[in-house]
Design a binder for these strands. Structure first.
Lengths: 233, 233
DNA sequence: TCAGAAAATGACGGTGCGTCAAATTACTAA
DNA sequence: TTAGTAATTTGACGCACCGTCATTTTCTGA
């Protein structure tokens, strides 16, 4: 009987936690970072500010939590991509596709990631969550390193070069998309398409063998969505 | 006599403007974005808040102004790079070097650039300054487009691809450096070196002819600093 | 039913932004 | 020189948000 009461409390706490996160997410989607205030979350959850603070020590912790779970869904998509594709090139391209599809599924959250790396943010967010967030980045880069070290014959230096280049390119585009940087004005109608073309150029430079299965983004997109569907429903 | 009085006022205003910007810059360098408050600027300039607000309608405008002048110095460095280098590859590499050297000369300011592209920021900053900022980006991307269209034989599509890939890579690394993303933990000791290696790989993929004059970053750095010295003294 | 623990609350102090009526300074013309 | 006017400067004020904590409310188990 004692257990029951504790269990119930735990469940209640957890469901409230979910409520907080979902309200935070909605606020973020509807009003952006500026609209995300602890008071607003309190109002919309019908709890008081103090109660919210028992779950998260600061606004930044909430944002971090959202970003972390977004990162987790990305990782699981990446894993599916790596399982599915055969050639190295196909794998790389599908991993990038995972980024875009994950980003399109929850744009507001995916865009938070770049905030997490600012000093102002890191000063405030709790160490635990920051570590968790960094662990996700670590996992992804490790996946990329193994990806490039298997089946290419690259030595370890070249593997690093390859991973770094991919990483910076991916991050660059991500940020370009995130900031809504109007590439149209600069003459780039569809950044994602340009990205994939550039990525292929980079892979050419690395000497990664071609693979027709992954040259067209429109096609790849459908392919990727099928692979990732477990995460998209 | 009437003119003199007006002139004096104009000069006073301008010198105060410079004072405000220099104080803002110092605050930014010493305490980061968090330490940059209108009150702090007022205190340190010995003017009142109201007076500061006659120069800049909001904090964001000040940041924008700093970022714009940083962008201008970058552009002049890029122009020097383009004048100086002969081969396409050398030009591209020197332009990237300009980014790094400009960024290292004034890291706190260079890192602001990514802030300017957030929606929160753009909501607040004045349209005039935002336009000016965007014009700088426009200028740079145009330089890159001409760079890739001259002496390569690329058709206009390939020129766009080339420019986009370079742009995203450059921006990706810039952000990685800006956020102090500890690449060391991930195994990348010197991101800038990795970047240049990746850039060469990308240029290889594009089919841009090799040029020994620009393969080593340590060497290139010295070269670049000489070219840019007019901006660095 | 009730005492004591646990949890929720929101008023409060603190900080920063941006405004604006009042005070100060500068200018002009007699 | 001086009185009146225009321009400029000032900082107190209203507002919004953060994070805290004494008080109140709810829960628990005897």
């Amino acid at each position: 009987m004692l257990g029951t009461s504790k269990d119930r409390k735990l469940k209640e706490r957890q469901s409230r936690d979910e409520l907080i996160l979902s309200v935070a997410k909605r606020l973020l989607v509807e009003q952006g970072m500026a609209g995300l205030s602890m008071q607003a979350i309190a109002d919309q959850t019908d709890y008081s500010k103090g109660t919210i603070y028992q779950h998260y020590g600061c606004k930044e912790d909430i944002v971090a939590k959202l970003a972390i779970s977004c990162g987790e869904s990305l990782i699981s998509m990446i894993d599916l991509a790596l399982q599915h594709a055969k050639s190295v090139r196909h794998k790389v391209v599908l991993v990038s596709a995972a980024y875009f599809i994950n980003g399109q599924a929850q744009p507001e959250i995916a865009n938070l990631v770049s905030n997490l790396n600012t000093p102002e943010f890191q000063e405030k967010v709790s160490q635990t969550l920051l570590d968790e967030f960094k662990k996700n980045e670590d996992i992804i880069i490790k996946r990329i390193l193994t990806l490039f070290s298997q089946g290419t014959g690259f030595d370890s230096n070249k593997v690093m070069d390859a991973a770094f280049g991919w990483w910076s390119m991916q991050w660059g585009v991500q940020d370009i998309l995130a900031k809504g940087w109007n590439m149209q004005d600069l003459g780039f109608a569809d950044p994602v398409q340009y990205f994939f073309r550039s990525l292929h150029i980079y892979l050419d430079g690395l000497g990664v063998p071609e693979d027709e299965a992954c040259h067209d983004w429109a096609q790849l997109r459908i392919q990727a969505q099928q692979i990732f569907q477990t995460n998209c429903e």
